[in-house]
Design a protein around this nucleic acid. Structure first.
Length: 550
RNA sequence: GCGCCCGUAGCUCAGCCGGAUAGAGCGUCGGACUUCUAAUCCGAGGGUCGGGGGUUCGAAUCCCUCCGGGCGCGCCA
């Protein structure tokens, strides 16, 4: 990457300046891309930092310029403003970018060296007691994009869904199905007050009845509920997976909470904590002394009735993940779960793992609205906006893109009517249109007998400011991937691809690609191919399609 | 009361790991299609970056404080 080369050059100058007593020590060196074109290709503030207290950062900057070793990268250096060093690079590096970017098999922008770090990204993990809703859709879009971007940044990533297929919620779900099932056969029954009221439960019960008939009507209630829970769970599980796949969200692992209970892992986890002296029996329950490890208060692991809490399962699950060899666990949780982060971190430390290896990203609330009216999404209450419904209305691309332009820290007000209405104006189409347009140009070039051969094209013909801008924008992709991954901020990728599309549009406006000038046409076609490849790559990481025509 | 998040253009939001003149989309107003895709482009208008204080050569960005909004503070998940 060009910044590495620049860093080497400037470091040499810094060392020389230290040796000569111009500055005391070489500060941390960083480069940034100036917002304004006249500030060069890359800038650094080292002189400002190193000159601190010495009064004249500009003098330090000038001294550094004098000490830059000879090289074939930097075309010009200027000392600017309070003491910035602005570097203007030789166009050769941009040509190199175009060549590398134009070949999709080279995966331009992706990490060259693969980290050994194994990362587990767990996201959505919704209760399997109802269809995937719009809120989970945000998690699916963000988690999936984040996982892909981490992969591009060189991590070994596993996408995981934690299936809460145990516990009270599931029982309530089973009881709710059973009530509808019985009523279907004329037996009086009602859904528990705290059960699942949604219409889909009735449909589910009827579907099951159609499959298995009335054989569960006359069996003991306990058996009926157990069997219906199992069948209902399996149906919902398939349904969720299908909705998520339709939303271009796939998983490597569906991890069942139930297996933790059945294999004794939960009891083991409690024992491990007990051995650390962090478990205490109190009021008939088993407590984790998490307050000692930074939590607000101690937490119950095993209730008085012998049933483990969600935390106990989390402890076992945490262990299971580390046992599978992961170095880092990223959890995407709804912001309403932030209160449980401290206990998970406490458990991490208690079990002897690195606190920092567990990273909980809180995805802020999605407030659902429908025509201005707030709807409280709740599976149990029966009010929900299904992801499938959103996809039916606005399509996968627009839905994903809408979620991916926002920071996970930003609460989203999601008015489904407004989103449907605005769908045609969604910026995603702008980006896709740019891609389709490039494809159209390439088709036209081919019709006219132009061959695209980036290797032999004379890229030094690309001298128009719009060509220059486009090459520079392409070059930034190499920083966008690692930055987006490091900040866990998929919206950066969305912004980037939008800017790239916009920069391409300016190029399209100013520079006719297919002309009688064969050499220039070849150069511009190369730029088109590179742009197409980067747009497709970025959209791919976001899970958005890149159409050949629109 | 305590904790976490948010407050930036009319609306929805980027920018926040300190940098040079704060951005985008939508909306509004005015322009551009015999042209490689007008799902586009060009231009205009629009801002006490919630208020105040501090740190710094430099603050939308870091710290403190206040105000406003959201979420959470269970032997629920």
């Amino acid at each position: 990457m060009i910044t590495e080369t620049l860093a080497q050059i400037v470091t040499t100058a810094l060392e020389s300046a230290v040796a000569d007593g111009v500055i005391d020590a070489a500060p941390i060196l960083s480069f940034e891309r100036p917002k304004r074109r006249e500030h060069g290709d890359w800038a650094t503030n080292v002189a400002l930092v190193a000159g601190k207290g010495r009064g004249a950062p500009r003098d330090v900057a000038a001294a550094l310029v004098d000490r830059l070793p000879p090289n074939d990268v930097i075309e010009k250096v200027e000392v600017a403003g309070p003491g910035f060093l602005n570097f203007y690079l030789s166009p050769v590096w941009l040509h190199d970018v175009v060549r590398r970017a134009s070949d999709p098999s080279q995966r331009f922008g992706w990490a060259k060296r693969h980290s050994k770090e194994k990362v587990n990204v767990e996201f959505v993990s919704a209760n399997p007691t109802g269809p995937i809703n719009v809120v989970s859709g945000r998690h699916a879009a963000v988690g999936g994009a984040l996982a892909s971007i981490l992969e591009a940044a060189g991590y070994d990533v596993t996408r995981e869904f934690y299936l809460n297929d145990a516990g009270r919620q599931l029982l309530l779900f089973g009881e709710s199905i059973a009530a509808h099932y019985l009523r279907r056969y004329g037996v009086e029954a009602s859904v528990p007050d705290d059960g699942y009221q949604g219409e889909y439960v009735k449909e589910l019960a009827e579907k099951i009845a159609a499959d298995i008939g009335d054989r569960l009507v006359s069996v003991p209630a306990e058996q009926r509920i157990e069997e219906l829970t199992g069948i209902g769970l399996a149906v919902m599980r398939v349904d969720m997976e299908r909705s998520l796949e339709r939303f271009r969200t796939t998983y490597d692992v569906w991890f069942s909470e139930r297996t933790l209970h059945e294999t004794g892992k939960i009891a083991e986890g409690v024992e491990r904590l007990r051995q650390k002296g962090l478990v205490e029996e109190r009021d008939g329950a088993t407590w984790f002394l998490s307050e000692r490890l930074g939590d607000d208060k101690d937490r119950v692991l095993i209730r008085g009735n012998g049933v483990p809490t969600y935390l106990a399962a989390d402890v076992a699950y945490l262990t299971a993940k580390f046992d599978r060899g992961f170095d880092r666990l990223i959890y995407l949780w709804g912001a309403d779960h932030h209160g449980t982060v401290a206990r998970l971190k406490a458990a991490t430390e208690a079990l002897g793992y690195d606190r920092e290896a567990v990273e909980v990203k809180l995805v802020q609330i999605v407030t659902l609205k429908r025509g201005g009216e707030t709807v409280k999404a709740s599976k149990r209450g029966g009010v929900l906006v299904e992801l499938d419904e959103l996809v039916d209305e606005v399509g996968v691309d627009a839905a994903r893109y809408t979620f991916l332009t926002r920071s996970i820290d930003a609460p989203i007000e999601f008015d489904i009517e407004a989103v449907k209405q605005q769908a045609p104006d969604n910026p995603v189409y702008y980006v896709q249109y740019a891609h389709a347009r490039i494809c159209s140009i390439l088709r036209k070039a081919q019709e006219q007998g132009h061959q695209v051969d980036v290797a032999s094209a004379d890229l030094s013909l690309l001298v128009h400011p719009s060509e220059d801008d486009l090459m520079r924008k392409l070059a930034t992709y190499e920083e966008v991937i690692p930055e987006t991954a490091a900040l866990r901020a998929p919206q950066r990728m969305t912004r980037f691809v939008e800017e790239l599309a916009s920069t391409f549009s300016a190029f399209y406006r100013d520079c006719k690609v297919v002309t009688d000038d064969d050499a220039l046409t070849a150069a511009r076609l190369s730029l088109c191919v590179a742009t197409k490849s980067v747009v497709a790559s970025a959209l791919g990481l976001l899970g958005v399609s890149a159409p050949e025509s629109m």
